[in-house]
């Protein structure tokens, strides 16, 4: 039993390791899939253009090669004519001399003829050889010339393409520069507009704020004079509607620190009554807005018994 169990244990361990290996592999593959998005995307666009243009020129030069053969054929026919001239000469000499002489002459003639023929043939051969050589040379020359022409043309094409490419590049660079300039100008104008509108907005906001503060100040001034009026005990001998002006120093809390007479009404009892009323009104109602409250540091209080 112990042996069987041990074998089972080993098999179980191997299977467990297999399960872990399988899961680890799945994880590694699954995670590394998501890492395959590196960055070089911009450079490839530029490299692709020259590679596409260059392979185009080669197919054009090959067609002119078969031409030299037909041109070379007609030449040997023209040069074959001189053969006929020497043959005509021996026929004109026929006289009635002795047979031997004749024979000799004929022999001689034949020999001469044979010689001439041989010489002619030799000459012909030579000429043909020369002709042949010349033809070959011509053909070679022509071939070379054509190849040269093809090469020059290919060069020209290549140069043109390069020029075109350079031109294109230059134009693109120019275009890019222009676009850049345009963009910059746009940005500048935009920035300018933005700053201008910002300034305008700021000004409008400031105006609005000033108006608001003015309203608050007015309201609180009214409240202060109402309070003073409520606290005032006017003397009985008051006649008319005299105005008295006091300058009042106020703490931010509304407490009055100093009251100073600026312009008397002419009635001393009324003046003191108003002064007492102002003292009694301390603390004055102060706006919670700090900027509005700043207007109340030094306050000029004008007071009339009747509004």
């Amino acid at each position: 039993m112990s042996f069987a169990l041990q074998r089972n244990d080993l098999a179980a361990a191997v299977l467990a390791a297999g399960v872990h290996g399988f899961f680890l592999m799945l994880l590694v593959i699954g995670v590394s899939w998501q890492i395959h998005d590196p960055q070089p995307i911009m450079a490839e666009l530029w490299q692709a253009i020259p590679a596409q243009v260059k392979p185009l020129p080669p197919p054009e030069p090959p067609p002119p090669e078969p031409e030299p053969l037909p041109k070379a054929v007609p030449k040997p026919e023209m040069k074959a004519e001189p053969k006929a001239i020497p043959k005509a000469q021996p026929e004109s000499k026929t006289a009635d001399i002795a047979l031997e002489k004749k024979k000799q002459e004929e022999k001689k003639k034949q020999e001469e003829l044979a010689k001439q023929k041989q010489a002619l043939e030799l000459e012909k051969k030579k000429r043909q050889e020369i002709e042949k050589r010349r033809r070959e040379e011509d053909r070679l020359m022509e071939l070379e010339a054509e190849q040269e022409a093809a090469r020059i043309e290919a060069d020209k094409l290549k140069r043109e393409q390069e020029k075109k490419l350079a031109e294109q590049k230059r134009r693109e660079a120019l275009k890019r520069d222009e676009e850049e300039m345009e963009r910059r100008m746009m940005e500048e104008t935009l920035a300018l507009e933005a700053s201008q509108s910002k300034a305008r907005e700021a000004k409008a906001a400031a105006d609005r704020r000033a108006a608001e503060i003015g309203k608050i100040v007015d309201r609180y001034k009214a409240m202060i004079s109402d309070k003073v009026r409520g606290n005032a005990r006017l003397p009985e001998n008051l006649s008319g509607n005299p105005e008295v002006v006091y300058e009042v120093n106020v703490l931010p809390t509304g407490e009055i620190t100093k009251i100073k007479l600026v312009k008397s009404s002419g009635n001393a009892a009324y003046d003191t009554a108003i002064e007492k009323a102002i003292e009694k009104s301390s603390p004055l109602p102060m706006p919670t807005d700090r900027e509005a409250a700043a207007h109340f540091r030094e306050l000029e209080l004008k007071h009339k018994p009747k509004n």
Binding site: N8, D9, A11, A12, A13, L15, A16, A17, V19, H20
Partner: peptide, 18 residues
């Protein structure tokens, strides 16, 4: 955790066979 996982899979297979 790796050790625990390995041991538990081991026992899983042992028990499965047993």
């Amino acid at each position: 955790l790796l050790a625990a996982s390995f041991m538990s899979w081991w026992y899983i297979f042992i028990k499965l066979f047993a």
